[in-house]
Design a binder for these strands. Structure first.
Lengths: 139, 139
DNA sequence: CTAAAGCCTCCCCTGTAGGGGAGAGTCAAG
DNA sequence: CTTGACTCTCCCCTACAGGGGAGGCTTTAG
């Protein structure tokens, strides 16, 4: 109730360098709730909203999803330190990334190999009953 | 019209090892159309449908999307050889993958670095006005 | 006082590859 | 003839992070 400097959503969005839609969305999913509402229902934010917003962006930048960020913030708002949770999360995410990178590298290698093979094949011979022997010729 | 061995959708799905829904979907988006329809509207497929299906799966397996696969098939059905198109496609896809892999590796490295930093930080000191100094402390 | 700008909620849209289910017609066996 | 399995079309749903716009208040500047 004692909001010293109350920003409305437009000002927050502009100072944060984002869109009003995004701020509203963050409210809806619970990662950035307004300090209060005006009598007419307008969202009112304090200065800390900017820090919160930057945290959300920083967390997104390291690959966390908004649902996970909401959990971190919920822990913090319950007075707990989310550090343990965060460490688990980024450890797991790093491991998932490793797996994903290996998969993508394998896929890329297969594409390169298809590419080399395709260049050796004679296009004029490319006319069996199959669609394209570059792709399913190797099966 | 002269369909020697006419399969209905259930049989094709079973022999292909997939679902009826998938075959119907492939028809709708144009990657696997039935040879004809029965009087009552049932989809009827020839033996070649199995080859087509396998081609679609092989193409998906190397990372092509159904929209792209449809283009390849359309070329083939227009009597052209899709080889050139396919070679371009897989070349571009491989390049995209390279970029993506580099991005993901950078992200993973950043996560690992956050992880190491988090383990050095004292959780009891984790209580500023920010949510989590593991994440936004480095900004 | 009035017009413009800002804000509200609500609803649909994006892309990918289908999945789930409703309601209705069809086909084979008993 | 009937029952059960099969098929048809049509419509909504999924994840993700919002974007676009309608229709209706509120606030602010002139």
């Amino acid at each position: 109730m004692v909001v010293v400097t109350a920003m409305r959503i437009g000002e927050l969005a502009e100072r944060a360098g984002t869109s009003v839609k995004t701020i509203r969305y963050y409210d809806r999913i619970g990662v950035l709730r307004p300090a209060e509402r005006s009598e007419s229902g307008y969202r009112l934010y304090g200065e800390d909203a900017l820090d919160r917003y930057r945290f959300v962006r920083a967390a997104q930048a390291v690959g966390l999803r908004l649902g996970e960020i909401r959990e971190i913030i919920a822990l913090r708002d319950q007075g707990e330190t989310p550090c343990g949770f965060v460490v688990d999360l980024i450890g797991r995410r790093a491991a998932e990334l490793d797996t994903r990178i290996v998969e993508l590298a394998a896929l890329r290698d297969e594409l390169r190999s298809l590419d080399r093979r395709a260049r050796r094949l004679d296009p004029r011979r490319c006319h069996p009953r199959l669609v394209c022997h570059v792709i399913d010729g190797g099966a």
